[in-house]
Structure formats: structure tokens, C-alpha cells
């Protein structure tokens, strides 16, 4: 019988990363297409911590949770965690393994997949089961013009998914979850990495974009810092948060933590205003679930106009100050 294994990441402040619940709900959907395949989680954490997560697992539709607890798991370590994960995977032989595309997920996933000689599809925006029972993982291809569905010919079929790409279950899916404790074999691991310190950072911008009602995002069309200053003025006039496309970040006009898109953040505001953003698929997938989308672009043929409710063809350098004046008046 096939089964689906999810990596349960523990955050620095000892919570389960919420991406697990988004993956769990998606896994329920995949499970139905695989004759109700078991949905399991793999949890590596410090001694005693798993107890506090049990209710969350029971309420999220997990059939099994494989737990490796040890005091040496106080801080995430690639070498320890990947060794333990690989041992458990070799034991339970999942057909599918899904991992959140967080910094930890993106660190451990390729380490596991390469060690198991299998494939890994990064930053998927769609997961399905095809007619042959294979995991069909969809992500944009280079250039942002097309989506590609990627299959894997070895097991487990592995994929990473960014937080907030999928939605968690609207209500509890209660299961008779079995918790299986595994004694990790870590005595013989040569410890080559030593944890020195952790300094908590300020994540204010990231949280602001997550909860923003209106986001005004700028792209390469804003050309320079003066363009971004106009964008910020306009955002202020309507009480919006500022975001950016990958192009603007690459040009050094905006910092990477406000990047929206496949490799940045996924946002779902009430209103998303895209200024000078052409609309590559990588950007669209990060904002397409906004309630309403407005585009400002000089090129009437820009793909962004295929993904918005309303727009204006024109130069953001002229339009943004006009709009700012209207809203400040």
C-alpha cells in the first residue's frame, strides 16, 4: 500500500511550522486518488516536545506520525536530521514525500533526495496524482511563459512547496493517529557542524505583507530608485504595503524579503496593484489569489493584463503621482 510522508518542521520557538497543515490538507486530496493511502508525518525534535503537537496531528488527518526525539535535536542540523530522516524513509518506504520550501526544507530536501538517488521538484504550485498513480508536480518553467508538470521515475517522489501556496483544511480532519517513536541511531555520526549561536531577527515586513489588505507591488518598469519612491508615496496615500517582483529585486530596487512570486512570498490581499510588472508566471503564482488585481503597465500586450480585473495602459512615472494626488486630496 502506498503512503504519503510529510516533513514536520519545528520552528525556532518550538512550534510546528504551519506549512505542515497546508501540505496535510493537500495530502488528504492526493490520498483519495491513491485508494486512501496513509498520510504520515516525520517529526524530529528535542526530547519531550512531541507531546505538545499530538492534538494538532490528530486533528489534521494524519494516520501515522514517526517521531525521533533526542536532546541533540535542539537545533536543526543538516547532518543529524537528514541521517535520521533517511533511516526512517528507508524503513517506511513512502511513495511520496512532501516538504515545506522553507530555508530548513530547502536545506534538508535536496540532501535527502540526492542521498536516496531520487528526484525532487522544487517550489511546486500544484500537486496531483496522474492516471498512472504518479505524483504530478507543477511549477513554472524558465521564462515564466509556461507551466511544466514534472514526474519522477524513482521513489519516493519528492517535492517542496512554499508556505501559503496551499490552504490548510477549513475544519479538523480527526483521525486515530498512531504515534511511533523511533530511537535515532546517531551515536556514530561524525559531528562536523557545531551550532554557535542564534540571533533573532526582525521580521516586520514579512508579517506586514502576510496580513496586508492592499499591496502595491513594483517591477522592472519602475526602472530606478526614483520609480520606487513614487510607488512608496502612492502606497502610503492608500495605506498599502509595498511588494516587489523578482525583476525589481534583481535590479536592487527592493529587498528580497518583499519579493512576491514563486520564489518569494505568496500573498492574498483584498487588492493587489501591480506597477511596471510584466506578469511572468513566477510572479502571477504568488499573487493570483488576491481578491482583485489592478495592473499599471506601459505595454498593453504585457501578460499581466491577462491576469487582472482592471488596469491602465500608461507610464507608472506619470500615473503614480496622479493617483497619489487624488488620494491625498
Amino acid at each position: 500500500m502506498s503512503n504519503i510522508l510529510l516533513y514536520a518542521e519545528v520552528t525556532k520557538d518550538d512550534f510546528l511550522h504551519t506549512v505542515l497543515f497546508e501540505l496535510a490538507y493537500k495530502a488528504q486530496e492526493l490520498s483519495k486518488k491513491l485508494n486512501n493511502a496513509d498520510v504520515s508525518a516525520l517529526l524530529i525534535c528535542k526530547t519531550g516536545l512531541s507531546e505538545s503537537f499530538k492534538e494538532a496531528f490528530i486533528n489534521s488527518g494524519f494516520d501515522y506520525v514517526y517521531i525521533a526525539e533526542d536532546d541533540s535535536f535542539t537545533h536543526y542540523s543538516t547532518e543529524l536530521y537528514s541521517k535520521v530522516a533517511i533511516d526512517i524513509i528507508n524503513e517506511i518506504k513512502p511513495d511520496i514525500m512532501l516538504i515545506g520550501a522553507t530555508t530548513q526544507g530547502r536545506d534538508i530536501a535536496p540532501r535527502i533526495s540526492a542521498s536516496l538517488h531520487t528526484g525532487l521538484t522544487a517550489d511546486c504550485i500544484g500537486l496531483d496524482i496522474n492516471e498512472n498513480g504518479q505524483l504530478a508536480a507543477t511549477r513554472p518553467t524558465f521564462g515564466g511563459k509556461l507551466m511544466a508538470t514534472i514526474l519522477c521515475k524513482r521513489l519516493p517522489q519528492m517535492a517542496t512547496v512554499r508556505p501559503k501556496v496551499f490552504k490548510p483544511a477549513p475544519e479538523n480532519i480527526v483521525k486515530d493517529t498512531k504515534f511511533i517513536y523511533i530511537k535515532p541511531e546517531i551515536e556514530n555520526i561524525e559531528k562536523r557542524i557545531e551550532f554557535i549561536e542564534f540571533v533573532k531577527g526582525m521580521n516586520s515586513t514579512i508579517n506586514e505583507l502576510d496580513s496586508a489588505e492592499i499591496i502595491v507591488a513594483g517591477g522592472k518598469g519602475l526602472k530606478n530608485e526614483a520609480g520606487f519612491a513614487l510607488l512608496k508615496n502612492f502606497a502610503e496615500s492608500i495605506g498599502a504595503c509595498v511588494g516587489a517582483s523578482r525583476g525589481a529585486v534583481d535590479m536592487g530596487l527592493a529587498s528580497a524579503d518583499i519579493q512576491i512570486g514563486q520564489t518569494g512570498k505568496t500573498v492574498t490581499p483584498k487588492l493587489y496593484i501591480a506597477c511596471g510588472i510584466s506578469g511572468a508566471i513566477q510572479h502571477i503564482v504568488g499573487m493570483q489569489d488576491s481578491d482583485k488585481i489592478i495592473a499599471i503597465n506601459t505595454d498593453e500586450k504585457a501578460p499581466i493584463f491577462e491576469h487582472c480585473d482592471c488596469g491602465i495602459v500608461g507610464d507608472a512615472f506619470e500615473i503614480l503621482p496622479k493617483l497619489t494626488d487624488i488620494f491625498k486630496a
Binding site: T118, T121, M147, T149, I150, C152, A295, E306
Partner: peptide, 18 residues
Amino acid sequence: PTYVSKAFRPINTRGECE
């Protein structure tokens, strides 16, 4: 281990842009 099974244009569900 991985291969592209198909490439396609995403469907626009938002309708005509005003």
C-alpha cells in the same frame, strides 16, 4: 530521476480585464 511530462499555458480564470 525527474522529467517534464507536459508544458502548458496557465488558464486565466479572472476573465476580461477592464
